[in-house]
């Protein structure tokens, strides 16, 4: 495999958790190469290690063993501050719920990451509004999260993830709290952005709606990747 094309290159990732006396191996030696432009869904039963893997790939958590390079950078050697910076400039995140800062409007939530990056005010507001329009939320820019439906909130999260033009968007169960119609249209939106703009997506989900939209399925079981379907 030509690793130059690989956005993510993980080898032998192990992550153990201790709960009381017990030790749980949430990841048990994960190897994963993900090319630029992928639209992959990480699927598997509850407890198979999807969130744990996504957190490590997103530099939100550190593995106990293994190597990981993202965009050619050895992110496991980074300090906490360097990781925060890497996330700010290279990664987009969409979580299952509580994705938004609740005292900020939709526009301000999207603009937040741009502000951290020092984008001037006029420019960041323009970009925030453009992305909100892109995800179908034109006219709702000034609403607070509690004034938006669950599907609309997830769309704001998509807009925020894409506004900073990341190398990859990591999404953890983005459709889990949505009805099937909203879930479908969210997946459709992300798939469209992948096709149109070449944004790389890695989505953890056991929602059939999400799996249907995938270009590739990465199957997990007991902390291992057991099968890759598609591509």
């Amino acid at each position: 495999m030509n690793q130059d094309h690989m956005l993510i290159c993980a080898r032998g990732l192990v992550r153990r958790f201790h709960s009381g006396q017990e030790e749980v191996a949430a990841l048990n030696g994960v190897d994963l190469d993900l090319p630029k432009g992928a639209f992959s869904v990480l699927a598997g039963r509850s407890g198979s290690g999807k969130t744990t893997l996504l957190n490590i790939l997103g530099t939100l958590d550190m593995p106990d063993a293994g190597t990981l390079s993202i965009s050619g950078r050895d992110v496991l050697t980074f300090s906490a501050a360097e990781r925060a910076d890497f996330r700010l400039y290279r990664m987009g995140f969409i979580f299952q719920a509580y994705n938004l800062i609740r005292v900020l409007s939709a526009r301000e939530n999207v603009a937040y990451v741009l502000q951290l990056r020092g984008v001037p005010k006029a420019e960041r507001l323009r970009r925030a509004d453009a992305w909100l329009a892109e995800v179908g939320l034109a006219g709702l820019e000034t609403r607070r999260p509690d004034q938006l439906s669950g599907g609309q909130q997830q769309r704001v999260a998509v807009a925020r993830a894409l506004a900073s033009e990341p190398d990859i968007v990591l999404a953890d169960e983005p459709t889990a709290n949505l009805d099937s119609h909203s879930g479908e249209s969210l997946m459709h939106l992300m798939r469209e952005l992948n096709g149109k703009r070449g944004v790389t997506f890695l989505i953890a989900s056991h929602d059939p709606v999400a799996m249907d939209a995938a270009r590739e399925l990465v199957m997990m079981e007991d902390g291992r990747i057991v099968e890759r379907i598609g591509q």
């Binding site: 996330r87 995140f93 979580f95 509580y98 994705n99 938004l100 990451v113 951290l116 925020r160």
Partner: peptide, 16 residues
């Protein structure tokens, strides 16, 4: 706590 976690995930530095 969740919101601070979110901010951190989005790349907000600890100092911020």
């Amino acid at each position: 706590i969740r919101e601070f976690g979110l901010m951190s995930a989005l790349g907000t530095a600890g100092s911020e």
